[in-house]
Design a protein around this nucleic acid. Sequence first.
DNA 1: AGAATTACCTGAGCGC
DNA 2: TGCGCTCAGGTAATTC
Length: 267
Amino acid sequence: MPELPEVEVTRRRLESALVGKMVTQVLRRVAKLRLPVSAELTEILPGMTIRGIERRGKYLLFDCCKGWLLIHLGMTGFLRLISSGTPPGKHDHVDFIFNDDHLLRYHDPRKFGIITWFTGDPLQHPLLAEIGPEPLTAAFDGSYLYAAAKKRKVSVKQLLMNSSVVAGVGNIYANEALFRARILPSRAAETLTPLECTDLAGIICKVLEKSISEGVKSCVAEETVAYYPQTFSVYGRGGKLCYVCGDSLDEIKLGSRSTVFCSNCQK
DNA sequence: AGAATTACCTGAGCGC
DNA sequence: TGCGCTCAGGTAATTC
């Protein structure tokens, strides 16, 4: 599923392909994803030029000069950049056709994504306004994390996955970062020491940045997809052997989310 | 306010 | 073969 790195890789690819290009047509095949797909998009967007593409957490923000196109990929969504005229397949819900004969196609089997239109400061949009600091900025550091964790009884992993605490960290990277920081996911957030918070914040940055650079390297000509091959230390490896100590990895549920860790390496 | 729970959605995998 | 069940999980809304 697309998390911050996948969204960032998508953003960079789309930015280099679409900035300065004009939308000529929007085709909407479903009325509703997780939220209604703004009906006015088909009438408003044609004629508009993409000035830039930003990212906030897992949201892509297309600057259309007169307003913003906000896209969230949900669980299973991805965007592809293909030739216009390519016939749509199953779950190809929305097409954005550009004046250079490119087609940006939104595909999402589970329809957990969001496509909406907003005028004004996109950061003030209700969906974005409460999101915590970006993990790859100076605003997210050990002292911030320590303050956020203090007096919180939820598990560290659930704290990291709370988007109002830090933007864009989902299940995969929460599992991976905690493994690398040697911290048990089930630990109450309030038990983290300042030193552990500094360590963890730095590791979160590293894990995300490494994934982004892998995604950039794997860039396939033409097609823009949110997914790229990656290897994880613990995510999806419950019952398999820890790469560090060789013990078998444990898998539990935290907040109904699959959580994998090494009880030998993580304390 | 924080924590826990529910809802949204479809394909994959499984037991029978 | 196919039915019914569970699971995957981001995040908003709802409830406690």
